[in-house]
Design a protein around this nucleic acid. Sequence first.
DNA 1: ATCGGCTGTTATCGTCGATTACAGATTCCG
DNA 2: CGGAATCTGTAATCGACGATAACAGCCGAT
Lengths: 230, 230
Amino acid sequence: MTDQSELRLRMLHAAETQLSASPEHDISTRAVCEAVGVGQPVLYRLFGDKAGLLSALVDHGFDRYVQRKQALATTDDPLDDLRVGWDDHIAFALENPAIYRLMFSPMLARQPAAPRTVFKLLTATLERCAEAGTLRVPPEIAAQQIMSANIGVALALLVRPDIYTDPDLSARVRDATFAGCVSRPSKETEGGSTALTATQLAARLRRNPAPSLGAEEQQLLLKWLDGLGE
Amino acid sequence: MTDQSELRLRMLHAAETQLSASPEHDISTRAVCEAVGVGQPVLYRLFGDKAGLLSALVDHGFDRYVQRKQALATTDDPLDDLRVGWDDHIAFALENPAIYRLMFSPMLARQPAAPRTVFKLLTATLERCAEAGTLRVPPEIAAQQIMSANIGVALALLVRPDIYTDPDLSARVRDATFAGCVSRPSKETEGGSTALTATQLAARLRRNPAPSLGAEEQQLLLKWLDGLGE
DNA sequence: ATCGGCTGTTATCGTCGATTACAGATTCCG
DNA sequence: CGGAATCTGTAATCGACGATAACAGCCGAT
């Protein structure tokens, strides 16, 4: 029970250590097994195959990533929470370079499922922005922009520090990306743009469905509002 | 002479074909050699080792990338050239998924040198923007923002089409990124911002150094102007 | 006590990256 | 012209690795 899951964790830890120490960014199942003092069949029973071990390592990395994200305080300023989330993503990448490389490697045979959870977290914060009336596009749309840019910057800083030398690169792309989809609440924006108001209304309806509308009507309305929001 | 370089190309082509067909995103040196009808030592003489073959494949990909970029017309609207360059980057990624994955994989043992050339091309266009007075930061700074975001979006669309479903994702991030460092010439901006003017002046001085200043003075002045531009 | 299922071992297979040893062709020079 | 040196390829092999088969001890359930 606890034994096998503890062995699992020990193997994952050994794999992570060896991956961090490997200039080739690769590990060998033999070395991992030897490090924890077991034979290879144990690894293959626990993880199926080498890809399974790497997948588990990726999932383990995403677990820490999500745990860390959820530990971040939720303030009453969702836009500031967004900024903190972006910076924390970059910090995670720089503090866990080996696992981050693996987590977001485009060469992985099977891509992990965890990013969908990460997306939900980001979307939740964006929903709060939308409710506050600072989101100019539907949350799912904004989430894709933010995530792709955030990962792009993290990989750049991680993999090519020789090229991406600007210490403010992350902050610059962050501000530009956020400026592209969210806007500070101000007198000008308030009641101004129809897109903004539609997005705001959609967010409120998603939290508190209107009792006067049926389920299908509600869905259709939200679809229209999202259309206006884009 | 031509023989060995032709053999090299044939092996590169075989490697690319097999990489594209491999669900594991990996190739075997044996299969490549067998495909072109030679023994393994030939490969090791031409490329050193497997990493050398992959490096050559990456360089070959960057050659095509650069060739394609240089084939893009240069108009009198540098901002529009920037947009075309961004879109072409995304198109290249989607049209050459296997090589693009490899070119920008964070798991490569040795990172290629070609990206520096790509950066120079982008910076050249940005210098033209600066001369036109539409760049708010030094070209090298802007280039880092644009490249990292561009790669981030390309990898997202390539690797996780199931998550990044917004058909306008690339255009949105592109516009937001450009809005972050360049601005359309208008009455407001003209003569308005000191940062903008400093960047513009730096670009002009870089093209036409002031005869009234010495080399060291010129360098110092440019450094100051870049500082103002940030 | 015994059966069945975990959990681990040793031994082994097939593949792959990489190297050695060697052979034909070509070039260069006495 | 002839032989030495170099280039260019092949066949055979090595060592490491991923993966599996066959087998052995432990432990709870009946």
